[in-house]
């Protein structure tokens, strides 16, 4: 059988299906016009989006206006903005202990510093790694796999691996002990634990961002670099004038994704530190989880209010990033 005959055989059921749907779709187009057809094709997607994103968002908002410990809305009392007022009841927002919900503001502060440090350090690490992996290295595919491998691990596994390394009787202390150092409780030291959550998070996620940046680097036309080389341009200038501007769209994607992921940090940190020591690695998502699901008397309303606020922050961050991206795109066109 020739290749063409085989293809037409394969297309037979597709063509048959097209003939079946053709007539009703034509009638529909006649009745609704072109714009109606767009709505028709978008409807399934919008339905799924509505059921699994919009509806929970609305329900969450309704929950945030209710009080009590019951789970069902019908058993909960309407309290208006009381949960939001409770979250914002503070003498000094920079001193969480002066707030009624001190754990919330501690989590907000921790999350702010985590996002700032983790995102900037991770993008820097991913960029440097992508630049190195883009060169003609020996066993380049192996190194790419090495950096991507942690992304494939479950966050719980990531948390457990690093817990075994960092705990008092862990691998790190064992190695240090071989060099004569005294064992140290890394996970009970506030500063080290905070640094560990940032480091572990970077280790776990940078592979994905490295891959995105690497794809961007490989899409930059080689002749630009050849022309720069012929002009005798210094490597640093090549980086600032060619690589970075042409990598900007990929960098924007990486920044947006990394920001959203960092604000939502939970699982690996929860397993690694449980939010401790004290509340030094208690981040917003854990606060919401503990308030809504884990404490002795759950408060779904307060947890919902906190998650609405977190959602708003994410929306603002994303819009800001997109705005910056659009501005630099327009600048490029000019």
């Amino acid at each position: 059988m020739t290749k063409t005959a085989f293809s037409s055989l394969l297309m037979t059921p597709v063509n048959a299906l097209m003939r079946i749907v053709d007539a009703p779709l034509r009638r529909l187009q006649k009745a609704t016009g072109i714009s109606g057809m767009a709505a028709f094709f978008l409807a399934p997607n919008m339905l799924i989006f509505g059921i699994f994103v919009l509806l929970p968002l609305v329900i969450n908002f309704v929950y945030s206006m209710t009080g009590g410990t019951a789970f069902f809305l019908s058993e909960r009392s309407f309290v208006g903005g009381e949960q939001y007022a409770r979250l914002f009841s503070c003498v000094d927002y920079l001193d969480p202990m002066s707030c009624q919900e001190d754990a919330f503001w501690t989590a907000v502060g921790n999350t702010f510093w985590f996002v700032l440090l983790q995102v900037s350090l991770m993008i820097l690490a991913s960029l440097v790694t992508a630049l190195i992996l883009n060169r003609d290295l020996v066993a380049r595919s192996f190194w790419r796999a090495v950096f991507f491998f942690p992304v494939l691990l479950s966050p719980v596994v990531v948390g457990l691996i690093w817990k075994w390394i960092l705990q008092r009787q862990g691998l790190l202390n064992y190695i240090l002990y071989q060099f004569g150092a005294e064992p140290y409780s890394w996970l009970t030291d506030r500063t080290w634990t905070f640094a560990a959550t940032i480091g572990v998070s970077i280790w776990a996620h940078m592979g994905l961002y490295t891959l995105i940046l690497l794809a961007g680097l490989q899409a930059i036309p080689k002749d630009l670099y050849e022309a720069a080389e012929m002009d005798g341009t210094r490597p640093a200038r090549v980086f600032w004038r060619i690589t970075l501007p042409l990598l900007a769209p990929n960098l924007l994607v990486v920044v947006v994704l990394a920001l959203i992921k960092a604000v939502q940090v939970f699982d690996e940190v929860y397993v690694l530190t449980g939010g401790g020591p004290g509340t030094s690695t208690l981040y917003l998502t854990q606060y919401i989880y503990e308030t809504g699901f884990a404490s002795a008397l759950r408060n779904p309303g307060l947890a919902a209010a906190a998650s609405i606020l977190m959602g708003l922050v994410l929306v603002v961050l994303t819009l800001l990033q997109l705005g910056v991206g659009r501005r630099s795109e327009n600048k490029g066109k000019r």
Partner: peptide
């Protein structure tokens, strides 16, 4: 022991049984 109580936030349960079992 500091580790048991400090190594979590909130109401998370932590047992110190392993430290005792390991002779620590």
């Amino acid at each position: 022991a500091k580790d048991v109580w400090v190594s979590a936030a909130g109401t998370t349960y932590r047992a110190a049984a392993d430290d005792f079992i390991n002779g620590q």
